[in-house]
Amino acid sequence: MGTTVESAQLAAGSDEDRLVVTDGAVIVLDGATAHDPAMPSAGAYVDFLAADLARTIGESSSLADILARSIARAVDVLGIEPGAAPSSTVALVRIEPDVVDVLVLGDSSVIVGLRTGAVDVHTDDRLPRLQLPEADLFRRFLADGQGYSGRHQKVLQELQVAERARRNRPDGYWIAEADPRAAEHALRVRYPRDQVEWIVAATDGAFDLVPTLGVSWPEVANMSTRQLEHLLRDVHIWEAEVDPDGQALPRAKRHDDKAVAVVRIADRTES
């Protein structure tokens, strides 16, 4: 297909990111950490979605239809129900002979570098746009220097309860969970293949933190797997040594799982 893929992952405590590279596609999932003890871990859910999507992403259907069917199968196999199920962000990239297909659901992101030099960033910001009071409290709590304490955990639990009440609703936000209809609301974009030079797909643990190191996405797009591994370790060190209490960059955990994949597409006009 004239593509090369480099990728790296760095797990934190939850280890619920999944990154799968298939022939012509990249799948990136970020299972939501269950801060609310009433909610199950996302591990089994993202394992199932990753394996099922890897098996079906090469089909001729749209990425949204493929994702919807994977969610439906997860419901059947795992016996989960809307509102009481684990959830995950989804970033899918499929390289076809003439087209590059991108799907984003939740706050994992896909960055597309065009041969014109333009860089398009695709990320789903519908959840933060809700401006939930609990989310504002969570950020202020950390920005005020109160750190990752027992009170912080209680604030996160309250936030997840508030988010769950708005999950997969027209007046809320959409995420892979137990309602296959969520796939219809994913952000989708198609590019003529010849216009695309590179693609980066990343979970928020990488996407939100890489810019703090002063590294641009075109620079990331030129990295080897070993360099990507070093980059994620540098992010981890920044979290631990520069901002251990989440004061400069408020985030749910000191260390989140991190996954990043780089797809480089050969220019077929060159010989």
Rank of each mutant, 00 (worst) to 15 (best):
T116G: 07
R69K: 07
D120H: 15
A32T: 14
G106Y: 10
D98M: 05
G113I: 10
S109L: 06
R164M: 04
P180K: 05
V161G: 11
G145P: 09
T212A: 13
V46L: 03
R268C: 02
G24M: 04
S60D: 07
P97M: 06
L142N: 09
S41N: 01
H236P: 03
S61A: 06
L228A: 14
A165P: 06
R126L: 13
R55H: 00
G83F: 12
S108C: 12
G24N: 04
A74F: 05
R139E: 11
Q227K: 01
G79I: 04
A252E: 14
V90T: 11
R169N: 11
S7E: 08
A182C: 15
L105H: 09
V46H: 03
L137T: 11
A248C: 12
S87A: 14
F207G: 01
H35P: 03
G246F: 01
G246K: 00
M1V: 00
A12W: 01
V20N: 02
S149Q: 07
E270D: 03
S61H: 00
G31D: 04
P170F: 10
D243P: 02
F141S: 15
G58V: 00
E163W: 08
E6A: 02
V93F: 09
P250D: 06
R193K: 11
V260W: 03
A38T: 03
R169P: 04
G79H: 07
A266F: 07
L10T: 00
D124K: 12
A240H: 09
D98T: 10
T4D: 13
G24Y: 05
P180L: 12
G150H: 11
A34Q: 08
R167G: 10
T212C: 10
I237Y: 07
R73Q: 09
Q195A: 13
P82L: 06
Q146C: 06
M1E: 01
Q146N: 14
E270W: 00
D243Q: 02
L29K: 11
E241C: 12
L19V: 08
A176F: 01
G214Q: 02
V20E: 05
S108E: 13
I237G: 06
D267E: 04
